[in-house]
Structures are given as C-alpha cells and as structure tokens.
Design a protein around this nucleic acid. Sequence first.
DNA 1: TTTCATGTTCAGCA
DNA 2: GTGCTGAACATGAA
Length: 261
Amino acid sequence: MPELPEVEMVCRRIAINGVGRTILRAEVRDERALDGITAAQLRSGLIGRQVTEARRHGKRLFLILDDGNTLTMHLGMTGDVLFSDGPVKSGGHDRVVVRFSSGGMVFRDQRLFGAIGLCGDVQENIACKGLGPDALVITSKEFSERIGGRNRPIKTVLLDQSITAGVGNLYADEMLFQCKVHPMTSARELGPRHLLCLHRAMREILNLSIELGSDFERLPGRYLLRDRSIGAPCPRDGTGLRAERVNGRTAIFCPACQRRR
DNA sequence: TTTCATGTTCAGCA
DNA sequence: GTGCTGAACATGAA
C-alpha cells in the first residue's frame, strides 16, 4: 500500500470519516503493532477523545485529538486504515480497532512493519523521528540544497526520509526515469538542471498518483509505474528494463536512457 | 523450496 | 563523522 500518495488517500479518508467523531472504545488485537506504548496507555489516551484533525507528513499519519494529544500511525509496507458505518467486522490482520458512537476505524497491517502510537505535539514527533520536509511541501531550492552535494547514490538519497519525507522505492524509480538519471549516480554529480527536474517530477507524479487513486494503470503511457517488471519495454525507447540493487532495494530503470555517468 | 515485496532500524565494518 | 552491507521484523505471493 503505502508511499506518500497512498498515505495521503488514507489521510483524506480519515478527514471525512474520522474527524468530528468521539472515540468510545479502543481495542488492541495485537500489541506488536504498538509503538512504544501499552494497550492500556493507548486505550486511556483515546477513550472519550474527539478527533479534531487528520494530518500527514511524509508517510506518517497524525490524528489530532481534542485534548491536544495525537494518535500517530505509520502504515509500514502493508498497513491500511478502514472505516465502517455499522459494527466493525473483523478482518485477518486487524491490529487495532477504534469504535465511535456509530461505526468504527480499523488499523490493519498484514506484515506488522507499521505502528500505531501516541504523542503530544506533532512537530515534536516529526523532529523526534528525524523526518525532513514533506515531499509535496519542500521547495525546489530547499530540495536542491538538501540533496545536491551528497556523496551517495541519488536513489539512496531520495529514499532517505531525513532528507525529504514521503518518497518510497517505486516513486523514486519513477522520478529517476522521468529525468533520465541512473539510480547509482552520486547526488553530487547532479547539476541544478537535474535537481530541478527531479523536484518537478516528484511533485508531478505524487500529485497525479493521488488524483488517480494510486491506480497505476490509469497513468499515461510515459510512466514506468505502469509496468516495472524486469525486461518490460521502456516506455520511451522500448529497451528492456533492468534491475539493480541499490541500498538494499531493487531499482528498476532503463539501461539505455538512464545511463551511468 | 526459495525468493521477493510500496518500510524502518540497527549492528558491524572500512 | 561518512557510507555501505546485511540482517531483522512478519507474512503472503509467485
């Protein structure tokens, strides 16, 4: 599920279905999903509170409560937040179930790489997790300043949430493809033109993906995300796509138009 | 049976 | 301090 666009869609869902509602019960079905708190702490922090606002920073979600505290969520690799009008029916990997006066909200996460917790101030939590500026908020100037000059592969830098928050493996590959940059290129070799291109591509693909509900099949043909399987034809020149391991993650790229420099 | 997966964090080493 | 690799977390799909 989750990179920035997917998390943003969840955030909007929470804004529509969760904000304004009062929490009557909170049920922890798997304590392994909790981030540094006990089930009892989560319950006492939530019960009786009203959700006043839903916010997102990078891949992190914040549900602001009417007592000034905040429910924090990270979706990990397989997390999702679901709402139901009636009684919440139990799914296979529901880790935390929150009940409102009518209906409820479920934190579901198959692989348990996600987490749910409590914090006070949102900005404090962002700082404490070491997150950089959000990918949809950062200006091109700040983006270039934070990325340029680093002596690490650009793919690694784009995935570093402390530099800019929200870009994951798939969207990093898409940005590099759009700008014809090889994933192993050192960030310090990139000139202002490439940095600007990456910033523009980042905003464009993230916003477009949000608009299309992360349905990659609805993307125009020029996008790598439509088919990032090894050997699939490059949307630009038909060359078979290649995979390379960067930073422990698979980078998919076109060996012809994203040349190593 | 083995490998891989949209994420994060930490230990160990150069 | 910088940067890289590999492992760990838990689970399902190919």
